[in-house]
């Protein structure tokens, strides 16, 4: 056995990977899609959302943070795991204020796309309708916490890609929210609309102004193809 390759299985399919990868990275490399929300390639994994939960030797773990290992048995595409993922997506829908019919990112929203892929016809848990704050102080961008799923992508992108540290988390549990690193809202930060942190939001929480509704219905990223197809159609080179 080579020290530079580990071999394991995902849903019975043999996968080979470099030993320094996570399960999610190794799966991506061979064209196996593990549903995910807070994970984004090029950012360190956050491990917040738990949508990428898989079972390793029967135990649930985060695929985005769990390293590959020789001989592990990974379960991913099972009804049990999809049902847990559906529950997470459903809770995110009812905890936020997501009005899809009037939202400018409908059709390219990853939360919505996950719901479609997992065939969640509608959330059935009671909606919270919590009051959330909007920050429209910046001339070019706005932050609508009604649509935030607390994935922390903007927090990580601002720190690691933009080297700016514009966003953070404040409070805990149900009161947790995205904070802005200034005394007077987004306008008092050094954020620009071209920052990487502006392009990583999976929903319509962090949006560039005056760019909405530009793609017609039918041509938006998830109108015809499920989220994850871009990974599944990748050439497998194992």
């Amino acid at each position: 056995m080579s020290m530079n390759v580990v071999t394991f299985t995902i849903d019975g399919v043999e996968v080979k990977s470099a030993p320094d990868k996570t399960i999610l990275q190794a799966a991506d490399d061979v064209g196996i899609y593990i549903p995910r929300l807070c994970y984004l390639k090029d950012l360190p994994p956050g491990g917040h959302c738990r949508v990428c939960t898989v079972k390793v030797n029967g135990r649930p773990v985060n695929a985005c943070t769990y390293p590959v290992a020789e001989g592990i048995v990974v379960e991913n595409n099972t009804e049990e795991l999809h049902s847990l993922r559906r529950n997470i997506i459903e809770m995110l829908f009812v905890e936020g204020n997501h009005f899809c019919p009037s939202c400018e990112v409908a059709g390219k929203c990853e939360l919505q796309a996950l719901a479609y892929r997992l065939a969640l016809l509608t959330p059935q848990m009671p909606y919270l309708y919590a009051q959330k704050e909007l920050d429209a102080t910046h001339p070019d961008v706005y932050l609508d916490r009604n649509r935030c799923v607390l994935c922390g992508r903007c927090v990580r992108a601002s720190i690691y890609l933009d080297k700016k540290n514009v966003f953070g988390f404040e409070n805990r549990g149900i009161s947790m929210r995205i904070s802005v690193n200034s005394n007077d809202g987004l306008k008092d930060t050094n954020l620009t609309k071209d920052d990487k942190s502006m392009s990583v939001c999976p929903t319509g929480c962090l949006v560039v102004k005056r760019q909405g509704f530009t793609i017609p219905v039918g041509k938006r990223p998830y109108d015809k193809k499920p989220i994850g197809s871009e990974i599944e159609t990748k050439t497998v080179n194992s």
Binding site: F99, P101, S102, Y127
Partner: peptide
């Protein structure tokens, strides 16, 4: 059978719930 965003989630009219 409930059909459409308003029957399923309250939809746009439920924006008043805030």
């Amino acid at each position: 059978v409930a059909i459409g965003a308003c029957a399923l989630t309250g939809g746009v009219p439920s924006m008043r719930n805030l």
